[in-house]
Design a protein around this nucleic acid. Structure first.
Length: 111
DNA sequence: TATGTGACATCAA
DNA sequence: CTTGATGCCACAT
């Protein structure tokens, strides 16, 4: 099982640098499925069955912690981000463009 | 088999 | 500027 699609998403998320964040659209874009950012979120929904998936580093285009509700505890996601040195205010990541990590750009996923 | 849903993104009005 | 509607692909029922 584990379609390559999901594994790809997990792998990218795992490779997100510490203290850095990425967005669903960016991941979806790097996967080659631009616009299907939902699949990234959907994959994350299944990330509970995976091991170490820093889903808290994955946020939406607005830098909003949309998926915080799925961490089991709403404050948890913000706590984790702040713990990494990321400034989060009102469930929103500050300096998003500075912390934003583009896998298709920073990561050479030629294959 | 078909329908609905989903942690989003983008376009149009 | 804001709000609404559509698309995307995979999974669940």
């Amino acid at each position: 099982m584990k379609d390559n699609f999901f594994q790809r998403v997990y792998e990218v998320v795992r490779q997100v640098p510490h203290g850095r964040v990425t967005t669903y659209g960016l991941i979806a874009n790097s996967l080659g499925t631009r616009g299907s950012a939902r699949m990234v979120g959907w994959a994350m929904n299944a990330c509970h069955g995976e091991d170490d998936i820093p889903a808290h580093r994955v946020i939406n285009r607005q830098g909003l912690l949309t998926g915080k509700h799925h961490f089991g505890q709403i404050n948890l996601m913000q706590q984790l981000l702040e713990s990494e040195g990321i400034e989060v205010i009102d469930d929103q990541v500050q300096n998003l463009e500075k912390l934003l990590w583009d896998p298709s750009k920073e990561l050479d996923m030629r294959v």
